[in-house]
Amino acid sequence: MTKKPLLEIKNLHVHYITNEGTVQAINDLNLELYPGETLGLVGETGAGKTTTALAMMRLVPNPPGKIVSGEVLYKGKNLVEMKEADLRKIRGNQISMIFQDPMTSLNPIMTVGDQIREGIMLHQKVDKATATKRAMDMLEVVGIPMERYDEYPHQFSGGMKQRVVIAISLSCNPEILIADEPTTALDVTIQAQVLQLMENLKVEFDTSMLMITHDLGVVAKVCDHVAIMYAGTVIEHAQKHKLYRTPKHPYTIGLFESIPNVHETTERLKPIIGLMPDPTDLPTGCTFHPRCPHAMDICKVEFPEVTHLSDEHWVRCHLYPADKEVE
């Protein structure tokens, strides 16, 4: 634990308050992102991945969403309590985001060039002509000819639009790039291209990246560290190879076992028994205990704290004794 994290989330709770009840989307979530690394945030649909990403930029739609408690520390500054005007200087500038669906994340009545230029004009003290030039350069960087600056989003394909979104997010050379399932909405060949592009640009722009995905293949390809999310919290956080070789949390183990092995003939797939809990009515104690093959009595009562198993590998499970007992 010598390196200092660039971004750290501490005990974050986010709720969506609806007429049908309070949805506990994020529950006591902890996460660290170190400079230069790519962290994969993995979880099922509804685990709270996108909410985590939005909370990091304080973009959770309010109402109905509300950051109830916790901290998001960027270089030691708490973004949860920051003034809106100060936060705007960070959004798109130091922390920027790529969204899931490129078809809807661009403004249909604005040229793609202008949409890239907008961010540049907001955060860099340059005149219009310079900003236009930079926006054109960004288009070239993501592999779109700059002659297409004046075209509108509907004139681009899905993969091209996602390239434009990437250009927008990288236009101010951010320190942190949050990519919320950037390839989910694209077809497989384009997925590979866009992932490759993101990997290259991450190195070129020297950016830390949070890659949100439910695709363990994407994680294996691009990430250095992995955080596994379940029912609104990170239950295991480790260096990629460690996690793939020695997963500790029963959920993580189940997740890997559910992937069929290409070298063996598999008669039946091995799913994790049960379903994700209803976020309006979470189980007591560890939220995974109703599905856990190793559930103990304590799991039903007490939510496990973080246990550091080794450097850069922690887990939240009662199977592993808590930190203080080890020390």
């Binding site: 920027s96 985001m97 949409q115 907008e118």
Partner: peptide, 22 residues
């Protein structure tokens, strides 16, 4: 409620400009 409004917010654009421009 559209995604591109969220994109504009994520760029760091001011709320008043988001309303008038986007």
């Amino acid at each position: 409620r559209q995604d591109y409004i969220r994109t504009a917010r994520a760029k760091g654009q001011k709320e008043s400009k988001i309303i008038t421009r986007h």
